[in-house]
Nucleic acid binder design. Sequence first.
DNA 1: ATATTTCCTTCCATTCTACTCGGGAATGCT
DNA 2: AGCATTCCCGAGTAGAATGGAAGGAAATAT
Lengths: 139, 139
Amino acid sequence: MKISTKGRYGLTIMIELAKQYGQGPIPLRQIAAENDLSEAYLEQLVSPLRNSGLVKSVRGAYGGYMLSKPPHLISAADVIRVLEGPIQPVEGIENEAPPQRQLWMGIRDAVKNVLDTTSLEDLASYKEQDSDDGYMFYI
Amino acid sequence: MKISTKGRYGLTIMIELAKQYGQGPIPLRQIAAENDLSEAYLEQLVSPLRNSGLVKSVRGAYGGYMLSKPPHLISAADVIRVLEGPIQPVEGIENEAPPQRQLWMGIRDAVKNVLDTTSLEDLASYKEQDSDDGYMFYI
DNA sequence: ATATTTCCTTCCATTCTACTCGGGAATGCT
DNA sequence: AGCATTCCCGAGTAGAATGGAAGGAAATAT
């Protein structure tokens, strides 16, 4: 029940690109440095993002990556789907017995709903709202 | 973003035990046969379920496993937590930047809500409701 | 005594994860 | 033209997780 670093770092890339949307291509090196991540690894993640059409690239000096659409038109679900595959809590849900099937579909829909209703703009323009203090991380 | 066979098969065990709750100990062999699963593998899964107190065991001939509480008092979340660990879409959520943190917590709460509100009784007494035909499995 | 069943440990093949590395191709700057 | 920068692409790799298999010991009913 995990989203791997593929989805996590991929989302980080997309949020950085969203923050600087409209300011020309952003090199991966910068994103890697700011988030303390491996540039070579990010390279592998951005490749499917480009193939799927979510980002555009410019090669050469002063090149980099940019979103191919405004941040409010790209959802977290779009990014996760490209990097982690279809949103589904189990493989082969159609072969499961009806009770389990109903459960997995419920989970899938709940997750999908959160990811679908969160845009890159939401994530990039995030402002601290009310305090998280006391909120439990593990449940 | 997956629940492995540990959680899935473990839930299958628990649902079978729920169906036959109050009818004495059920051997794993029977559950394995009915669901076409490896008995040796189920053995490994039921061990943590016993250690956590969700099931009780009776050794020897005519022995087996049984729920330690009525099915309506055990949630799917109880089972998944024992076999898959804490319900969390990413590791180390507290180290994530606030925007991502908010997203992961939203997903976690959504999943937790579905699992918490589904009891073994719900799963064991499942009756076909309205048709699933045409419902998409992959989204 | 024997069959059954849980209990416990170890081992194994395969796949996934999270990278690293090396090199090639395009582009801008001087 | 030459050089630095940056994307692009494939291969390799150590470690962990997955999904089991195997063997034997201990308990219990008949």
